[in-house]
Design a protein around this nucleic acid. Structure first.
Length: 254
DNA sequence: AGGCGGTACTG
DNA sequence: CAGTACC
DNA sequence: GCCT
């Protein structure tokens, strides 16, 4: 039986990444929020799908998926068949794809990346680093010395982290440990619900940081307890409803 | 046709 | 305060 | 863009 097992078989994750690429390029291009957000949402849906997106496409029921309408479905079909899409192609001709990695520098979003590109001609991490070191960034309106420092830190972090992501097998037990510790540190009714989020929740093979989500009647109490856990090395940011810390070992956690 | 979250940091 | 970035 |  020649039952068609195409040479180009793409996983749900491949599709999701393609949709994310489109979303980011659209965002850099300056399209309105909801245009690109739709693609990012759809990407998350596909990424978490238990079924194979190839089967769904074959059945012609892509648009039954939440967040997948005519536009996204079209892109998915093209991608599954060719490994690319017209939309992505058009976007690539308008925006350098290398800008996408700049977007991964913490503190840099699409807006800033777009300006760095148009106003300073920066398209790569190396160029970004050079410009920051030469203090060319702070010349831009809305950018300051602090932003420049953060960019330098961010680039360094990215260069390291790129080759040092944490395996799920290490990260998950740590997260579960934090959750348990938090529960034990507080009265039972202080936390309505608490669970891993982000890449942890999506069972990605490696994670860049830990995300934990808690539902509580008293956020301040939980934030305080979180910051005082023994696992915490340094509080990077402490808000009323959100806290970011660095754990012993370097892993960061929200 | 109309809606599409909320907070924290920077300048 | 406005603009931006992130969860 | 997608959903209601």
């Amino acid at each position: 039986m020649m039952n068609a097992k195409p040479t180009h078989t793409f996983t749900n994750h491949d599709v999701a990444e393609h949709l994310r690429l489109i979303a980011t390029l659209k965002e850099i291009k300056g399209e309105g929020r909801f245009h690109w957000l739709a693609f990012r949402n759809a990407a998350d849906v596909i990424d978490n799908l238990p079924e194979d997106v190839n089967d769904i496409a074959a059945a012609g029921t892509l648009t039954d998926l939440p967040g997948v309408g005519k536009g996204v479905a079209e892109v998915i079909e093209q991608f599954l068949a060719t490994g690319d899409s017209e939309l992505a192609g058009k976007l690539r001709s308008q925006v350098p794809v290398t800008l996408v990695e700049l977007t991964e520098v913490p503190g840099l979003g699409a807006k800033k990346v777009a300006r760095l590109w148009r106003e300073l001609g920066i398209t790569t991490l190396a160029e970004l680093k050079a410009a920051a070191e030469a203090h060319r960034i702070r010349e831009l309106k809305g950018f300051g010395a602090k932003t420049e420092e953060n960019i330098l830190k961010g680039v360094a972090l990215l260069e390291q982290r790129r080759h040092a992501r944490t395996p799920l097998g290490v990260a998950r037990p740590q997260a579960l440990g934090l959750i348990q510790a938090l529960r034990e540190a507080l009265p039972a009714d202080a936390i309505t619900a608490i669970e891993p989020a982000g890449s942890l929740r999506r069972w990605k093979e490696t994670v860049g940081d830990l995300d934990i989500l808690a539902i509580t009647p008293d956020p301040a109490q939980v934030m305080a307890a979180f910051q005082q856990l023994p696992q915490v090395e340094e509080v990077l940011l402490g808000g009323e409803t959100k806290t970011r810390v660095r754990l012993h070992g370097g892993l960061e956690c929200d």
